[in-house]
Write a protein that binds this DNA or RNA. Structure first.
Length: 379
DNA sequence: AACCCGTGGAC
DNA sequence: TGTCCAAGGGT
């Protein structure tokens, strides 16, 4: 690993910020340094690319112009605004923190990284980002870009996948942060990390800081950062129950104990839950259908006649799970009195008014394709 | 420390 | 199609 002299650090700041002032991106959340704007953008940007965030940020600010509006928003509106962004606990934590600020802090923002980190959803990176950008505190915002950029500049070979490595980077970067313009410094590192110093297909030869880039000078850019691999997602088999009646389709809301909390889907049942442990994988589709029909008859006194829909299952991959969802359909000639199941009946036209996760949208698209194709062949 | 939590883009 | 990865945080 390399170490920089005071002189080198001063030259680096000057070079970096001159480039940032010239070439920095014009982004919606950079129009001012309002902590509410900085905060919302930083949370949206967690593990999410800039181009994805831009339209969400614009709509979010139109819907919730102030932290008070966000604190008072109803959950359905909030989740609908976040639909498609992923990591949905971010939205719920965002509102909880807004309520903390309005009530506990009487609308006055905490202005240091340490104080900001007390708020739910604001961790070591985001607290430093807000503190530096909105309040001018000279702290390094160490995100994936900072890991990558500084590991290359200084040949740091610590494994960035290990939690402990963050502290090392914070200590190394702290004296390099420009104390006069910490917010611009941190954002310049991010722009660098998304342009010349990207994970793949980087262009270090044209980087404004190529003279400071030890990995480039040694021809070892591809060796940095060092990051151990993550395990592959494990497969989980589901059945989606598309149950309809004159009252509409049966939808259920995800609980706090499940992922996708607060969003709506058709009832989803794991294949594993249907079997008597030993031969779960072996059970045939016919056996699973019988199990489901028995379950509804015994638990809910609702006789179902399930039929399969579509050929291949709907596939949807999360960070740690790969869902394979087989579609099953049942039509009830009359709508059973609720509650026979912890959900609600929704007309076809009103389903899309609900906050829906991507996997539910995929299921609905596949189902609609089947309905369309049967309309042609059947009549 | 290890694991959980979404989605879309790039290749 | 598979794989990696993107301005991480919570538990």
């Amino acid at each position: 690993m390399k170490e920089w002299s005071e002189t080198t650090i001063r030259k680096f700041r000057q070079t970096l910020l001159a480039w940032y002032d010239r070439e920095g991106r014009d982004l919606p959340w950079r129009r001012d340094h309002d902590p509410y704007h900085v905060w919302v953008s930083e949370v949206m940007l967690q593990q999410t690319q800039v181009n994805t965030v831009i339209p969400y940020y614009e709509r979010f600010m139109a819907t919730f112009p102030t932290v008070t509006d966000l604190a008072q928003a109803d959950e359905a509106t909030l989740l609908k605004a976040w639909q498609g962004l992923g990591y949905y606990s971010r939205a719920r934590n965002l509102q909880r923190a807004a309520q903390q600020i309005v009530t506990d802090y009487r609308g006055v923002w905490p202005q240091t990284a340490a104080a900001l980190a007390e708020l739910v959803g604001i961790g070591p990176y985001t607290s430093c980002a807000i503190a530096s950008i909105a309040f001018g505190q000279a702290v390094p915002a160490v995100d994936g870009n900072a890991f990558r950029v500084f590991s290359r500049l200084l040949l740091i070979d610590a494994d960035i996948a290990k939690p402990k490595t963050r502290q090392l980077f914070e200590e190394i970067i702290q004296p390099i942060v420009d104390p006069d313009r910490p917010g611009a410094f941190n954002q310049a590192i991010m722009d660098l990390g998304s342009s010349y110093m990207t994970p793949k297909n980087s262009d270090p030869a044209h980087s404004p800081v190529k003279d400071f880039d030890a990995s480039y000078q040694l021809g070892k850019v591809e060796d940095y950062p060092v990051k151990t691999k993550v395990p592959r997602p494990k497969r989980i088999d589901y059945y989606a129950l598309i149950i309809h009646s004159p009252a509409g389709y049966l939808l259920v809301q995800r609980t706090e104990r499940e992922m996708l909390t607060g969003y709506w889907t058709f009832p989803l049942v794991t294949k594993a839950s249907l079997q008597s442990a030993e031969a779960a994988d072996e059970a045939t589709l016919a056996q699973d259908l019988a199990s489901l029909e028995t379950l509804f008859a015994s638990d809910y006194q609702v006789p179902l006649s399930l039929t399969t829909v579509g050929g291949r299952p709907v596939s949807h991959t999360y960070t740690h799970q790969r869902w394979q969802v087989k579609l099953l359909e049942a039509n009830l000639p009359t709508a059973p009195a609720l509650p026979f199941y912890p959900g609600k009946w929704v007309s076809a036209a009103e389903i899309t008014d609900l906050p829906l996760p991507k996997v539910q949208e995929k299921i609905m698209v596949r189902y609609q394709q089947q309905v369309d194709s049967q309309a042609f062949s059947g009549n």
